[in-house]
Design a protein around this nucleic acid. Structure first.
Length: 103
DNA sequence: AACAAGGCGGGTC
DNA sequence: TGACCCGCCTTGT
């Protein structure tokens, strides 16, 4: 993938991310797909990882395809994401994310 | 230059 | 359900 293309891809990823609404979640693969390259899920992870810690972007609305938080359970990052999601109506059952009201 | 590791995903057994 | 493997691309060493 050419450098220029990579940049464009990143830009689209951030754009899609910025437009996720409260309570909505997506996966790395899905985000990659929406940004135009379904097979760059890993790249999405790297992009999110590099976001500034004070970013306003909803990085926490991105989970993996099994609907699980990708950080290792118990780590700070994991807890931060969990808290954020819980504030938006999600709960962690077992390791899986589920909506609080629906069922 | 070579290799390992990553906030992954899909498929198989 | 869980443990693998394999493809993907970028980054770090």
């Amino acid at each position: 993938m050419a450098n220029q293309e990579t940049e464009a891809f990143k830009t689209r990823v951030l754009f899609v991310l910025a437009h996720l609404e409260e309570g909505e979640i997506t996966s790395y693969g899905e985000l990659a797909r929406q940004a135009g390259n379904a097979r760059y899920a890993r790249l999405v992870g790297q992009i999110l990882k590099k976001l500034p810690s004070d970013t306003h972007l909803p990085w926490y609305r991105v989970v993996n395809s099994q609907h699980r938080i990708s950080f290792i359970e118990g780590t700070d990052a994991y807890e931060r994401q969990k808290v954020k999601l819980e504030q938006e109506g999600w709960i962690v059952v077992g390791q899986k994310l589920m909506q609080k009201e629906a069922h």
